[in-house]
Structures are given as structure tokens and as C-alpha cells.
Design a protein around this nucleic acid. Sequence first.
DNA 1: GCGACAG
DNA 2: ATCTTGTCGC
Length: 242
Amino acid sequence: MNSMLYSDCEQIKASFNKEIAIKVQNIISKKVDLRDYVDINEIEGKVLVGLDASYLNNGLGIGVAVAIKYPQYDIIDCDITIRKVCIPYIPGLLAFREMYLLVPSLLNILKKVKPYVLFVDGHGYAHPRFAGIATHIGVVFNTPTIGIAKKRLVGEETIKNGDIYLKIGEKLVSKILLIKNKKIYISPGNKISLETSFNIAKIMSGNSKLPIPIYIADRISKIAKNHIDPNLDCKKFIDKIK
DNA sequence: GCGACAG
DNA sequence: ATCTTGTCGC
């Protein structure tokens, strides 16, 4: 599972090119579908997946995929990926850095469960090319995704019917969820609308600072930092959450 | 040139 | 994201 833990980054670095990455995003944005393939009235009993990454100060990154059942938030599966981080953080190109950490764990989760929707830490449609990491993953996996971000990347705030949105030109790309006076930027990734993304993120935000699938993925990725070993089993941490 | 800039 | 001490507020 972590066989390439110590492999170097040469191959990945060589395959990465900023201009090509931008072209890839433009292609992805043409495939985005913002219609609703999910229904908030059908979400009870469904499996949701949270994706998040954290980093160590030695060049390693940790990706977490956690499957949770709504509305009890039982953790039914969990997977951790540890890899050397090969791509720098470039605003707008986050997906090319973090997909290496998130995709292996997501694939392992998908072997066992069929999630209703994926929650991804970062923006989806609220992106300079409408192709943030949540959209990127949603298009590649052809599945509904919601982007959950703690900070604005692009867009201008605007108020409509008392709600705060982010708009790019005339299009609304994100709706802001206020949790304890803190702004959380919700945007559709793929196969979901902006309003449904917001409404689902909102009902997922029990008492935590973030929608619970992302909160739990975040917690696990940070706990894992203190337990780094090649045979790390995510399930050992399940009882340390909540 | 200057400021902004997901994680 | 991560590095970091004390400190303001509920």
C-alpha cells in the first residue's frame, strides 16, 4: 500500500507542467455538470466520503478518505495514504499536488462502498477556471462532489436574499456558510448544484467547525501525523474521533 | 511593479 | 498546509 513511500519525485516532477495543468483544467471545466444528481431528501442512510490532506515538515504528505453514514456519522471505512509530496503548492493548481495523496485512498474506499457524494477540502467551481480540486475529482470519478474551503481563492462577495455568495462576473460560484461567525466557502464540484451543495453542507455541520465529513477527515489526517509507519491502519484511530 | 493567492 | 506564545473571549 505504501510501497512507493520512499520513491523519489523525479517521475512525477517531470510529468508536471504548469501550462499543461492549466489546459487540463480547461478541459475538465467543460465536462462539469451542475445539475443535481443528488437529492437532499434522499440523503438519510447514505454513505458520504470526506477527503483531506495534511503535511509533515519532512516532505511527506498524508491523504485521508473516510466513509461516514448519515445521519449518525458512523465511520464505516477509512484509508490513509502517505507519500512524498512532489508538486509545490501553486494557487489554482492545488489538485495537482493533492490528488497523489487523495486518489489512492479514495480508490480503496470505492472498492468497498458506493458513496452518495464526496466532500473535498478545497474549492470546486469557485476557481479561476471553474476546476478546483473538488471539481477535478468529481469529473475524473464521474461522481457528485462538494468543495469545502476555509478561505476564498477567487470571486467577489455579493448578497442575495440575505445570503452571501461569491461571484465571478455574473455567475454565482460559491455560497458562504457561516459557522460560529466564520465563513466557510461551499461550491459545487460536479453533478450537483450550488444550492444543493450548500444545503447539504449545512445539514452536515452539527456542532463542528466544518461539515462533519471534512472535519473527521481532517482530524484523522492530523492524528496520523503522530503515528507514521508503513503499515498505518486508519481504523485504529476511529475511536479517537468525535 | 504591486497585491492576491484553496491547501 | 505548517511553524508557533501568549492572550482575548465565552
